[in-house]
Design a protein around this nucleic acid. Structure first.
Lengths: 135, 135
DNA sequence: ATACATGCAAACATTTTGCTTTGGC
DNA sequence: GCCAAAGCAAAATGTTTGCATGTAT
């Protein structure tokens, strides 16, 4: 990932290395706060710095910004051949990555063709009450 | 819809009538601001009032709160047999309701069974550059 | 040496809450 | 009359920006 970032003109800084590493190893989408407060952010970068790096990585399509249900935005690494769908508890907010074959790839192609939209991608999330939150 | 709201114990107020009507007739998800500033909100209800009504309707599952990509939350009416998926422009934010048969219903049932989550529902959104925003 | 990256603090946008008053039942 | 609902304003939350300083190249 760092190579792709460098190729895009970003400088190799501690904050950038940390953030890429955190995102690559994450098992679920992370919010800005998650990242800024992560113990793996060894450089102790400021929230604004993390924010600006995330914006850049998003513009470069190295990561993706997701709008999940709570107030904050979430980020995931974007790697060829990797795509995740999620199962999220509406009560406690727990996010679980689904181990499924995503069923909408074909549909996506079709919509791309019919709608005239370009660079299509999708987000699929399932919401419900997780076992611990069920009455 | 008003019947369902009344049955749940809500009082018949102008703001509630307006908001239900606005949501029922909307062709796409609406944000709090969309609703609070709608000319169809003839009662001129305060933003806080709209907010509190939306929270209640969401708790009662008469509407659903969506997390799309921009900062604000969006709401859609929830009616039996009605389910929408969306196509959203990442550049201008335009939201289009897709006229497709949603392909994940079966998968949803399966996940419900396997995960132990209850009351499952899903959100599916396609994102891309709309024709007017494509270079 | 230069331009990009950072830190800190302040500005923003939107949601959420507290409290008093109004109005449905 | 009682309690839910509304209005107004303030607090809270999370994002974004301005500007002076530091640092990778």
């Amino acid at each position: 990932m760092m190579k792709r970032a460098r190729d895009a003109g970003l400088r190799r800084t501690n904050a950038l290395e940390n953030i890429l590493s955190i995102l690559v190893h994450a098992h679920q989408p992370l919010s800005l706060a998650d990242i800024a407060e992560s113990p793996d952010l060894t450089s102790g970068a400021d929230k604004a710095t993390v924010y600006r790096i995330l914006v850049k990585l998003d513009e470069l399509s190295l990561i993706r910004r997701l709008g999940l249900h709570d107030r904050s935005a979430y980020y995931t690494i974007l790697q060829p051949g990797r795509h995740d769908d999620y199962l999220i508890c509406t009560q406690c907010g727990r996010i679980q990555t689904l181990d499924i074959q995503c069923p909408v790839e074909a549909l996506e192609k079709q919509i791309e063709k019919e709608s005239g939209f370009r660079k299509l991608y999708h987000e699929l999330e399932f919401y419900g009450l997780c076992p611990s939150c069920s009455p």
